[in-house]
């Protein structure tokens, strides 16, 4: 079944509608191992919807989404859960569990899913927290943290599952401007470790620096695709240029 093992994620002819509203109209692209793919585009263009199809959070689409050659639409619930473990997801609104401490947020899934013993999970969580400079917050509850701190914990929570790819949906859009840098910093360091990443963002400088490939999504289409250099400096695509002119 592993047709093309180099592709961690492959999307073929993906279409999705909410009732009559076509939100994704024939999307095709692939994400290779260690590749950083950034998705940009105007609000309502379908970026979040696309990301939620990649880990089958929303499975109500036509077309194929493959994770390491496995077609998510054809997997059993159990197999799907195994795939999702390997795909970390970071949300705009952090979505930490408010009734669990920072440490519990990070260790809950690995312990529950028996990936690690409790002691190992706790050690691992402290290690990861140190890497993002938040170990002293291990016993704090999410609401006592700033937005930037919460998002760093959310990233750590995903990393604790030892994912093979990380999906980010506008991870800094809900943050006060002074906290954007700390989160982008964590992501940049993560990128250097070789993590495969798919990132939806409006931070154009960051996109330009981190991306191997940028998708410009507009109105349900991948309207333009290419290296940062191509997209920012050479693309002749009218919609790409209008969008970039507005946001840069």
């Amino acid at each position: 079944m592993l047709t093309d093992t180099e592709n961690i994620i492959e999307v073929r002819g993906l279409k999705k509608a909410f009732d009559q509203n076509m939100v994704l109209k024939d999307i095709n692209f692939a994400v290779k191992k260690e590749e950083k793919v950034v998705i940009i585009g105007p609000s309502g263009g379908g970026k979040s919807t696309l990301l939620r199809c990649l880990n089958h959070l929303d499975g109500n689409y036509t077309g194929d989404v493959l994770f390491k050659g496995q077609n998510l639409g054809q997997l059993s619930k159990k197999e799907l859960q195994l795939c999702r473990r390997k795909m970390g997801m970071v949300f705009q609104q952090f979505n930490l569990f408010p009734h669990k401490s920072v440490l519990e947020n990070i260790t809950f899934a690995p312990i529950k899913l028996k990936l690690l013993s409790e002691a190992e999970a706790i050690d691992n969580a402290h290690d990861l927290l140190k890497q993002v400079g938040l170990d002293e917050k291990a016993n704090a509850y999410p609401q006592s943290l700033s937005g930037g701190q919460q998002q760093r914990v959310a990233i750590v929570r995903s990393l604790a599952m030892q994912p093979e790819v990380m999906l980010f949906d506008e991870p800094t859009s809900a943050l006060d401007p002074e906290m954007v840098g700390e989160v982008l910093g964590v992501m940049t360091r993560l990128a250097k470790t070789g993590m495969t990443m798919v990132i939806v963002t409006h931070e154009m400088d960051f996109a330009q620096q981190i991306a191997d490939k940028i998708l410009f999504m507009d109105n349900g289409h991948v309207a333009d695709i290419g290296t940062p250099d191509y997209l920012f400096n050479h693309s002749k695509n009218f919609r790409t240029r209008t969008f970039l002119a507005k946001v840069m």
């Binding site: 939620r52 880990n55 959070l57 619930k77 859960q81 195994l82 795939c83 999702r84 473990r85 390997k86 795909m87 970390g88 997801m89 949300f91 609104q93 979505n95 930490l96 569990f97 408010p98 009734h99 809950f108 899934a109 529950k112 899913l113 929570r157 995903s158 599952m161």
Partner: peptide
């Protein structure tokens, strides 16, 4: 309980039941 809590649980690879009983119910 925000939809986001369910999505956070599911995207960690937790089952729907675990998400319901350990994440949603206590809140």
């Amino acid at each position: 309980i925000a939809v986001g809590q369910t999505e956070a649980g599911i995207s960690l690879g937790l089952s729907e039941n675990t998400t319901l009983f350990s994440i949603i119910m206590p809140q």
